[in-house]
């Protein structure tokens, strides 16, 4: 399916930022997102094809502007909502709770 993810042959996307070596995960949150996706995939909540599709449906400007594991987070959240495993309001409430806790520390 055509979409912004189908990048082969596009022009003007900039210089390759090659790194001879780099950490597997650049921040702890990247590893947690990776592991959460593998977990829900492993037990059958989400399959690999629908996960790819969830990222391919991202809004094009957003797709090109955010980091790799933000694509994963977007895809993971989208599928959890669409499948009714969690609701947007659940995550919002949890986020508010965590922010409240952080403010008290």
């Amino acid at each position: 399916m055509n979409g912004i993810h189908d990048l082969g042959g596009m022009h003007g996307l900039g210089k390759i930022l090659h790194t001879p070596d780099e950490p597997v995960f650049r921040s702890e949150w990247e590893g947690r997102v990776f592991a959460m996706l593998l977990s829900v995939n492993g037990v059958g909540h989400v399959n690999t094809d629908e996960f790819r599709h969830s990222m391919e449906r991202m809004e094009p400007a957003q797709y090109l502007s955010v980091s790799y594991y933000e694509h994963w987070l977007h895809g993971l959240e989208t599928l959890l909502y669409e499948k009714g495993i969690i609701a947007v309001a659940d995550l919002d409430a949890k986020l508010a709770q965590i922010k409240g806790n952080d403010a008290c520390q």
Binding site: S27, E28, W29, M36, L91
Partner: peptide, 12 residues
């Protein structure tokens, strides 16, 4: 972003 990921993990 870190907080959001933390919240998602706690919830799951």
């Amino acid at each position: 972003l870190e907080l959001r990921v933390k919240a998602l993990e706690s919830l799951l």
